[in-house]
Design a binder for these strands. Structure first.
Lengths: 112, 112
DNA sequence: CAGGATCCCGTCGGATACTG
DNA sequence: CAGTATCCGACGGGATCCTG
């Protein structure tokens, strides 16, 4: 994945590069404290395409936020769960979510 | 400004739409507790173009995070500062920054 | 089942020049 | 001084189809 060009090495920008974008926080939240399969994630997020889900999971894995657990049984079976780093991110996401909830009504998306 | 398409009305995604992108957190940080002029912001962030800085400031203003204070003197003089909502966002940004600092070294930008 | 390949389009952000 | 106007390339993300 690519990082946003980061003048001043701004740590906020750096973190945004990681959890920004459309899907990553949603994916992390869908994984939660579970160990969950690719197909199950796809069910939870019907709007995401295979390609994008696959790419986001790779990004999150290479960032060390999730584990990818592959069994060699058939049918193929791949599961994902959060690493300690991923778990440590969740409270931050909660803070972000709380701020968003308290300062912006749901309707704002249609307001602008 | 446009919001990321937001399935599930995810409040994290909503907040990311606001403070994501390359410049907004940096701008908010540069304003800080000061009242600061457009030209001064431009000096603090030499890498940002007039067009982008102007657009970002408009976004932040329409989101209610900053005030735009215009005097009708000549030469033209426009200043910006944080609103209460903008101030309330800063601790969240600090949390995000702390997480970024503790989990990712500066070098990560060049690593991937 | 879990993805990769391909094609496509909209938006973000940069460069440069211009203006009241 | 504080912006606008114009042009442009790069990237994110979607749709669809294919495969070990």
């Amino acid at each position: 994945m690519r990082f946003i060009d980061n003048p001043f090495q701004c740590p906020v920008t750096r973190t945004m590069s990681i959890i920004g974008g459309k899907w990553k926080p949603i994916i992390l939240n869908c994984i939660g404290d579970k160990t969950i399969r690719f197909g199950k994630l796809n069910q939870l997020m019907p709007a995401i395409s295979n390609k994008v889900l696959s790419k986001e999971l790779k990004d999150l894995e290479s960032l060390g936020l999730i584990n990818r657990l592959e069994s060699d049984e058939l049918p193929q079976r791949v599961e994902y769960n959060l690493t300690d780093a991923g778990i440590s991110l969740m409270p931050v996401l909660v803070e972000v979510a709380n701020w968003g909830n308290s300062h912006f009504a749901k309707q704002i998306e249609s307001k602008l």
